[in-house]
């Protein structure tokens, strides 16, 4: 668990963070969402002690971070940044094994770990010998994630990790990271200014305004109208639509429910597509139901506009 208590950080005259408090329970992916320059990165750097708070305390597992050995603290926290920060003079293998080597793991353990991590982040094992300049942005970022996970740290800090990747690859990376996080259940603090990214990944979202926390809650909590104007404005009026990207068709699919003939219009959607793409298809074709197919293109069910209305937001419409 990570806990920030009334943390203030000043750079000379500028207050980057003012009385900031946040709790991140274990195994939770906490997104810190806000415009650039609102102090998001400052929060991250305070946790791995790259910078010192002006006042306030930071706890990890109920222990003040000042009581940790600085070097050991950092080795137990995975860190991914937007510019990746891969060492250009190290190849992929050497970049991934930096922390395990610092921790003096055996060669055997390291090799096994690298193979596991490359599989996990979806990179071919023959990438080990490649240098960062030979990688695309997306590949580099995968290596960055693998490096952060190398020594199996319980905590991950990610500062706009997919920010410099093109939209198509970003979406792919988000999906894969979501899967990885479901598998590993790390305590993650994920900083982004991209609302959709926050929706896709977050267990909890903390919306920030300059230097301060504006609102905190699960992605569903932000559908309601009781938020302050700043938060509503930042999330945008399409927030609810964007929330549909978090769901896959299969999430609301009832297996046996194939409606009688004539009801289905013959348009199909894959069950691992997002609900927002299903909705787009309905709107563009002017229909209110779709057949759902699986990987083998076999029809496994159907969804209707009504299903979306009824199922997705049922908890938020009280």
């Amino acid at each position: 668990m990570i806990e920030l208590k009334n943390v203030t950080k000043k750079y000379n005259d500028i207050t980057a963070l003012k009385n900031f408090s946040l709790q991140i329970p274990e195994g939770i992916l906490q997104v810190l969402l806000g415009p650039s320059g609102c102090g998001k990165s400052t929060v991250i750097k305070l946790i791995n002690h790259l910078i010192e708070p002006t006042s306030g305390e930071i706890y990890i597992n109920n222990k003040n971070i000042n009581e940790f050995n600085l070097i050991n603290l950092r080795r137990g926290i995975g860190y991914v940044i937007q510019s990746i920060g891969l060492f250009p003079h190290y190849n992929v293998y050497e970049n991934i094994v930096i922390v395990p080597r610092l921790l003096k793991w055996t060669k055997n353990d390291i090799d096994r770990r690298v193979d596991y991590l490359l599989d996990l982040v979806g990179l071919n094992r023959n990438y080990k010998k490649k240098y960062p300049f030979e990688l695309s942005g997306g590949e580099g970022q995968r290596v960055g994630v693998a490096r952060a996970l190398a020594a199996d740290p319980p905590i991950l800090l990610m500062d706009e990790p997919f920010g410099s990747v093109d939209p198509l690859n970003r979406e792919r990376l988000q999906k894969e990271f979501y899967r990885i996080q479901r598998e590993l259940k790390k305590t993650v603090l994920f900083v982004t200014h991209d609302v959709e990214e926050a929706i896709r990944l977050a267990d909890n979202i903390a919306v920030m305004k300059p230097g301060q926390l504006a609102s905190l809650g699960s992605p569903w909590d932000f559908v309601t109208d009781d938020k302050e104007d700043y938060v509503k404005e930042f999330l945008g009026s399409e927030y609810t639509l964007k929330l549909l990207t978090r769901f896959m068709v299969q999430d609301i699919l009832v297996q046996e429910k194939i409606k009688s003939k004539g009801y289905i219009h013959g348009f199909q959607v894959k069950k691992e597509n997002t609900l927002s793409s299903a909705l787009s298809l309905m709107i563009s074709k002017g229909i209110d139901s779709l057949e759902v197919i699986d990987e083998q293109e076999k029809i496994v069910g159907s969804i209707t506009f009504e299903d979306i209305l009824k199922n997705v937001f049922r908890d938020t419409r009280k």
């Binding site: 791995n48 790259l50 070097i71 603290l73 860190y79 060492f87 610092l102």
Partner: peptide, 24 residues
């Protein structure tokens, strides 16, 4: 950011100099 990554991974001053700064 390379120096920052090195620090964030728990390299000490000496390791940063010998393993990152000097080679680069």
């Amino acid at each position: 950011e390379i120096r920052e990554s090195a620090r964030a991974m728990g390299m000490n001053r000496f390791q940063i100099i010998t393993r990152v700064e000097l080679p680069l």
